[in-house]
Design a protein around this nucleic acid. Structure first.
Length: 476
RNA sequence: GGCCCCUUCGUCUAGCGGUUUAGGACUCCGGGUUCUCAGUCCGGCAAUCGCGGGUUCGAAUCCCGCAGGGGUCACCA
């Protein structure tokens, strides 16, 4: 049999996926890839009340968009399916029988209200509430309409966590938790253990909130006589204030929003992976393959890291600049201004070359490039708000533009001749670039900013540049 | 409250007893890049390593207390 590393991402279909959720998936995926193993997607939908329609599709979509491919999952058949827990109820009941037969599971005879009363009493007495203290002497048979509880055997545990190191807990951490709910569905606590075993998962990665439950899990593994997988519990991603776990409530964004804003898959992955993990070098920018090669659980941080959107923005810009023009063209295809539709790809590529280094996210493309595709209306504010230009009178501005128009009409608009012409204009008009170039730039783009003047004009072209200058002259 | 865990520049982090006047990155500030925005290059600010005790010739690094923060104590995951 194979001893290949198998990891899984096991989300509940209760809403959208955000940076915090996806990091666990990414770590599990990176570990599997690093070890040349397999990555499995399993949907944990045992709480029907909390289920949000469309979540499964959303989760699958997010993984696809990030390129976190899985070897088995709801839509990828494998030999340990089905991969949706609600379709595995018979399996959990079979394992429940095993525990019942061993005398390690029993029917809960209390009503929820009775349990709640007992719990309140304990709280009043400042004592921890443990269900096992109220365990009936004689265990009654389970009729499947009541919760099935685990009969625990409390003891101290010391275990190793691949991220947190050596952990321990006393026997007060162990209790008779519910295995199967009265609706016949298993709890997470039971189902994940059965599934991880049946699916031959070797490394279980999950959020920090599960550390407190690990002693219970260890007790159950023993009762079931099954070997436990390696455990790894990365700390949570914190909100930007740093005081709590990143959550939807707290303003965490749907991962797809970042995609829609034009964050690259590679940047998102780089950023999320390095949120609480590093390889010890000073490298900041990683490709996906570099991450796979460098990743290891032993260098995941023990303390939570804050989600800093500014850093993500910087990193996205770095990844955009690392793209070839052809790659950038593919990525930015859906971000062009609508006016660009009638232009061919080679023209668009010329534009991309000019804006690549100033894009931080692809959604900016439309505003940054609109003037390359369409004549924008004259915007008087561009001159009025320019300190130096507004001090010159309209007549003088007009005069300068007329000289410029004449000069540029003799130019063939290659980059070199444009550069020459513009430099000669500086001499002939005896104006500094801050005035002359600003004026021509504003007149020919009607945009608050643009790539360098000569490069921009070369792309805009001679006819269009001259007509825009004329337009400006007529409006002064 | 019980149990468990965490704690290095504002943020992400390097650091595993001496090479550390604690290094890098983001942010911020200054300067160069014939105009603008961005980028890029150069430079700068910024942590006495949560606090207090030890151990040691020597501690951010080991030990013990304390404090602060987080997690958990569901028929949720």
């Amino acid at each position: 049999m194979s001893n290949k590393v198998r990891t899984r991402f096991a989300p509940s279909p209760t809403g959208f996926i955000h940076v915090g959720n996806i990091r666990t998936a990414l770590f599990a995926w990176l570990l599997a890839k690093h070890e040349n193993g397999q990555f499995i997607l399993r949907i944990e939908d045992t709480d029907q009340k909390r289920e949000v329609a469309g979540s499964i599709e959303h989760i699958i979509n997010c993984l696809k968009i990030l390129g976190l491919d899985y070897d088995e999952g709801p839509d990828v058949p494998g030999k340990y399916g089905p991969y949706i827990q609600s379709q595995r109820l018979n399996i959990y009941h079979r394992w429940a029988e095993v525990l019942i037969n061993k005398g390690r599971a029993y029917s809960d005879t209390f009503t929820p209200e009775e349990i709640n009363d007992l719990r309140q009493q304990s709280i009043k007495q400042h004592k921890p509430f443990l269900f096992r203290n109220y365990r009936p002497q004689t265990l009654s048979a389970w009729d499947k309409t009541k919760p099935l509880r685990f009969k625990s055997e409390p003891k101290d545990y010391h275990w190793h966590d691949e991220v947190m190191g050596d952990l321990s807990a006393g026997q007060e951490a162990i209790d008779d938790f519910v295995l199967i709910k009265s609706d016949g569905f298993p709890t997470y606590n039971f189902a994940h253990i059965v599934d991880d075993y049946e699916m031959k998962i070797t490394h279980v990665l999950r959020g920090h909130e599960f550390i407190a439950s690990v002693p219970n899990f260890l007790n159950l593994y023993e009762a079931l006589s099954i070997e436990r997988p390696y455990l790894a519990t990365p700390p949570p991603v914190l909100n930007s204030a740093g005081n709590k776990k990143l959550s939807k409530r707290d303003g965490a964004k749907d991962l797809l929003e970042y995609i829609n804003d034009g964050y690259l898959q590679s940047a998102l992955i780089n950023f999320i992976a390095c949120l609480g993990w590093n390889d010890g070098s000073v490298q900041e920018i990683y490709s996906k393959n570099e991450l796979i090669k460098a990743f290891g659980l032993n260098r995941v941080q023990k303390s939570g890291a804050r989600f800093d959107e500014q850093r993500l923005l910087w990193m996205n810009g770095m990844h955009i600049r690392n793209l070839s023009i052809d790659q950038l063209a593919i990525q930015s295809d859906r971000f062009w201004p609508k006016e660009a539709d009638k232009y061919d790809q080679s023209y668009k590529n010329k534009v991309l070359e000019l804006v690549q280094e100033r894009l931080k996210y692809l959604k900016e493309l439309a505003e940054l490039t609109r003037f390359f595709f369409v004549d924008l209306p004259i915007n008087p504010d561009l001159i009025n708000n320019n300190k130096k230009l507004k001090e010159l009178g309209n007549d003088q501005l007009k005069q300068l533009l007329i000289i410029a128009t004449t000069k540029l009409s003799e130019c063939d608009f290659s980059l070199t001749s444009l550069t020459d012409s513009l430099n000669q204009l500086l001499i002939e008009t005896n104006q500094p670039p801050a005035i002359l170039f600003s004026l021509i730039r504003i007149a020919s783009t009607q945009a608050p900013s643009s790539p360098p003047l000569a490069e921009s004009l070369a792309v805009i072209g001679k006819d269009r540049t001259l007509s825009r200058l004329e337009q400006q002259i007529n409006n002064l």
